[in-house]
Write a protein that binds this DNA or RNA. Structure first.
Lengths: 204, 204
DNA sequence: GTGCAATTGCACGTTACTGTGCAAGTCCGT
DNA sequence: ACGGACTTGCACAGTAACGTGCAATTGCAC
């Protein structure tokens, strides 16, 4: 197991990649999944995982980094000069939905975790941007809610969580899920269902 | 430690009660809280907890039973001959909000848990009732959503979760939280914000 | 104030997981 | 078919938690 630190052989890279993918799935299913569970699920022995990641912490940290990156990218795509808050939210939700699993991991870990110090911190910029967006919508009367913007942001986060769960449990068709989720989120922000559907049709 | 099984002395009862209360709080904070953490938080030694509950499993199970009971009671109060689905939902949310912590424990444990077999089962009747209620609202046009009733039920659950979190984090005034939450949930079901506020004012 | 239940303190045995070391494989490019 | 990167298998030490037994102690109730 000596090397692997230089890691440039394709075989090792493929394994590393598979371990990360499987780890994401396993940790989603059970946030306390052991290294052995993850390794076996990846078709590899525990010892091999330690060849790629020095510790469980490091593995999860890598996962979190990738997730934050994916989210930031998705978010950047939204910020492309959209002025209407409702449209911005619509685009944002649709974008996030694409990286649903990673988003979900982040939220799940950020909710309750001493595990990786600073998930909340790394998510903070995104959260704040979202809050500002919602605030603007509330101020301009595009959104209507008795909730302050930060609370509404929490609600949106958890709604997406709920809808991913619903897809997992077969309660919601995966094909339609993204659009449904977007309409649901807009509706929760007080946008009339009719207007929400218009927007989604227009954006998607 | 011999006895305690007969448990009728007030001291033991008080301890048992306190352990349960503290355990609820600790498990809410960290679903993986150890028996030692719980015991210490309850101002008691680990060994004493085992005097009251034969196992961690049993302790949690008791907590779940109490929570389900509290929820069922709250739900029963709602079913008192209310025909309008929107009003029923409003009453339901307000009632559940009263037992927020317990509800939250249930959802948190039910989401991810091999721990106690059958939390989902024990919650199933309540979930189904909720789904039927939502379905009726969708059918009669009181609610509007692209989501099927079961998915909407998930969303409502998670919304409450998010709002409790928001209260915890000081983003939402505790005094107003119940009413705000109710309006938010109704809004998410596609009830216009104005109508939702009317309803809440009327019910509360 | 005394008695008995309840609590404590401590010492176990058990299980499960993490992270590491090392020797023996296995796979792939060349 | 050779060599080196990668993987496996196994063994190990360290840690943390569960659940239990027992003797000593505390504190209510009467």
């Amino acid at each position: 197991m000596t090397a692997m630190t230089t890691g440039n052989t394709s075989r090792a890279d493929a394994n590393r990649r598979r371990i990360l993918d499987v780890a994401l799935a396993e940790l989603l299913r059970d946030p306390d999944a052991s290294m052995d569970q993850i390794a076996r699920a990846a078709g590899v022995v525990r010892r091999t995982v330690y060849g790629h990641f020095p510790s469980r912490e490091a593995l999860i940290s890598t996962l979190v980094d990738e997730a934050v990156q994916a989210l930031a990218d998705a978010d950047a795509a939204v910020r492309a000069g959209v002025t209407d808050p409702a449209e911005a939210v619509a685009r944002s939700v649709l974008a996030i939905w694409q990286t649903a699993d990673r988003y979900r991991l982040l939220i799940a870990l950020a909710q309750r975790t001493v595990t990786v110090q600073g998930i909340r911190d790394r998510l903070a910029p995104l959260r704040e941007a979202k809050v500002r967006l919602l605030q603007r919508g509330l101020d301009t009367g595009v959104f209507h809610s008795p909730l302050p913007a930060p609370a509404l942001a929490y609600v949106h986060e958890q709604m997406l969580f709920a809808l991913m769960e619903a897809v997992n449990d077969g309660l919601l068709a995966a094909a339609e899920a993204g659009r449904s989720a977007t309409v649901a989120v807009l509706t929760a922000a007080g946008v009339p269902a009719s207007r929400a559907m218009e927007l989604v049709a227009e954006v998607a």
